[in-house]
Nucleic acid binder design. Structure first.
Lengths: 236, 236
DNA sequence: CGCCCAGTTGAGGACACTCAATAGCGGTGG
DNA sequence: CCACCGCTATTGAGTGTCCTCAACTGGGCG
């Protein structure tokens, strides 16, 4: 795992510079937080594309918040195939399982350049003993993950290849409306959508030919959202 | 919603008779629990097959624990199709979203006869303010739901129809090993596996013809687990 | 410059979907 | 008790989509 220490930062923070402790999402609203006496410091690390944050089965003592970038959570099927179960974006939390002393249930692998806060479980445990408000915040994180999981099951596992690709592209714009959308490797796209790389390739080629997507710059797409929506919903 | 009040019971309880408060899973380990002054009582209700516990979008003030039976969580796609996102079994928790003042994100509908505990959110909120241990229990519930969701995404949305059906049947035996497995309507099975009713029907007919499943009694199957495992993993 | 990997494209076939007709089951009423 | 109805499950034929296997292309990098 290639990590580059940068600076101290916190869960769900919008901007890093003035973020120290107070403004944080997870720790927001807590009074009298004592951050002293940590065995393990909180830090902010950077990951290159395709580097591994953690592996399935590892028992970490760390929870992560994604400050910037995209991370894939990967599961492996008995037949050796892999399936990308979810993508995490800005301000999402990873590795909550560590709070329950459970091994991580996926591989977490960077898809783009990522900046990630590492929070020691011990800190969360200590604070949650004193501050019941933290419990609410944590549950919100769990809930968000579950809602995403359900959505992936419904949207990216049903319908034709065209529909699934369209839905995924639209999903990617949601986080950053108006911005161009990063395009991933065909293999990753296939693993997200339950399709083969060839099918994804063909589908994207066709969308490009009909002008619904255009390569603005290197691996950056601009979308015809209206038409893609119609495809996603099966109108076309 | 057809409900039949039965008796007071608690989250995750194994047996109802001697369950009052102490032995409960969610409330286990809490000291000095004061159950007085509840606006809304805790009760145990029963549901008939295909009756609705709650609907998507409703804002309930209740969390549920399934004591007995099977419940499907249903999502609806933009194109009108429905997808069963998860099945809940004995001792699973439903409606945790109510704790966060969120609307329920699915329809919850009974597949079999069900017995369900209803727990007012107000009680959980009050207790979690005092007892940090409850937070841990709640997170465990969230984690369990998320793990199931991920599993459904991996197992029931990839592979051939044969594989998916085999995996689902095996999943159903896990909760009650050795016991016969209930067989649902083909439409429900299709919605669980992302297949059409016809495909499910054909697949099950073929499994029955080859003797891998046998109808022990009315809608109760006995399985050739060994062979089904081989199918599930794509060895056949 | 040439290698290597990722993406594209093609041909053929397998699988699941669609539409449609039939069979089976359970309930109701004569 | 049987006849009839309605619903669900089954089965069939034909089609379409996606998968498989394989060849080819092109860009990035040593």
């Amino acid at each position: 795992m290639k990590t580059i220490p940068i600076r101290v930062a916190w869960l769900g923070e919008q901007d890093c510079r003035d973020c120290v402790i107070r403004g944080s999402a997870l720790f927001a609203g807590l009074q009298e937080v004592d951050f002293g006496a940590l065995h393990q410091p909180i830090e902010d690390i950077a990951l290159q594309p395709s580097s591994v944050l953690y592996r399935i089965g590892e028992r970490g003592r760390t929870v992560f918040t994604l400050r910037h970038g995209l991370i894939k959570l990967v599961k492996y099927l008995p037949d050796g195939n892999q399936r990308i179960v979810r993508l995490l974006q800005h301000s999402d939390t990873l590795g909550l399982e560590a709070l329950l002393n459970q091994p991580y249930p996926h591989d977490a692998i960077a898809l783009t350049h990522c900046e990630i806060c590492t929070i020691p479980v011990s800190l969360v445990e200590r604070l949650s003993r004193e501050q019941s408000r933290l419990c609410q915040e944590l549950m919100t994180r769990w809930q968000r993950a579950l809602a995403e999981a359900d959505r992936w099951l419904a949207e990216f596992s049903t319908g034709t290849a065209r529909q699934r690709v369209a839905r995924l592209l639209l999903w990617l714009t949601e986080a950053t409306p108006g911005q161009p959308v990063p395009l991933f490797g065909r293999e990753d796209l296939g693993a997200m959508l339950g399709l083969t790389t060839e099918t994804v390739s063909r589908t994207i080629a066709e969308l490009r030919r009909t002008g619904l997507i255009q390569e603005a710059s290197h691996h950056q797409l601009t979308l015809d959202q209206l038409e893609l929506h119609r495809i996603a919903e099966g109108i076309i």
